[in-house]
Simulated assay, not measured.
Amino acid sequence: MKFYNKHILPNLVHFACSLKPAMQLREKVVPLARGQVLEVGIGTGLNLPYYDAAKVTHLWALDPSPEMVRKAELKARKVTFPVEFLDLPCEDIPLETASVDAVLVTYTLCTIVDVQQALREIGRVLKPEGELIFCEHGLAPDVRIRRWQNRLAPAWRCLGGGCHLNRDIPRLIEEGGFRIQEMQSAYISGWGPASYNTWGVATWLQRPQVSVAEISQPERGG
């Protein structure tokens, strides 16, 4: 698996995550980031072209995969704001408490081993008025698709670099101490088990909150 993880997986992830439907969602959520930004799981840097350079003063780009980071570094040369790469897992973010205005996670929470520890770390580094901006695939509401997600999950974790097809992303975010302020979800074109996507904005409350079904989900204006 070492050869696969080093030489094949980075290209496979880049291909899957750069398909048009996913890129259209990136185009929606990435420009919401502002100020001092931390991107958790920058991967090959697919989000970099979508940042609003007029709003971002600094970007910390965190990812434990040197193979993917090398690809992201090439894209970082084309942006006008400073990008600082952190070659570390997100369960231990090397930034000061309350130092970040926004944290961006796109198609990353599905792969993190200890997702609750990672969310606690994200909450720790966010300023009191900071936002977690997320865009993820996850557990589908449709019973038929969910059944396939559960069947394929063990094998896909091995082939997809630890990617979980059946994580309930909104529930995990809330259990991690966040309140979801705005959220949208939809099936996008592509492979069925990974086609249910959720995106939105959450704020850190440091304690578990009510279920996502009880939270209003308004459209983001502007």
Rank of each mutant, 00 (worst) to 15 (best):
W148H: 03
Y187W: 15
V100T: 05
Q36H: 13
D114H: 03
I93M: 03
A33S: 10
A194C: 11
R151L: 12
S65N: 01
G192Q: 14
R34H: 14
L74S: 15
H164F: 12
Y187H: 15
E174N: 03
V201L: 04
G177I: 14
P66C: 13
Q181E: 10
T108W: 06
W204C: 11
V125P: 00
S211A: 08
L12I: 12
V105C: 05
R179V: 15
P10L: 05
Q116A: 08
Q149G: 10
P31M: 08
E27L: 02
M23S: 10
L46Q: 00
I112Y: 04
A213T: 15
A22L: 13
D63A: 11
H7V: 07
S18E: 11
V212A: 06
L32Q: 03
G161Q: 11
R124I: 03
Q206F: 07
A202R: 04
K28R: 09
G41R: 11
P193W: 13
V100I: 08
R70D: 05
Q36M: 07
R70Y: 09
V79L: 04
C158I: 12
I188F: 12
A54R: 12
H58V: 06
R167I: 12
E27C: 09
E175R: 12
L119S: 01
R157D: 00
Y196G: 10
S18I: 06
C17I: 02
P64H: 10
Q117Y: 06
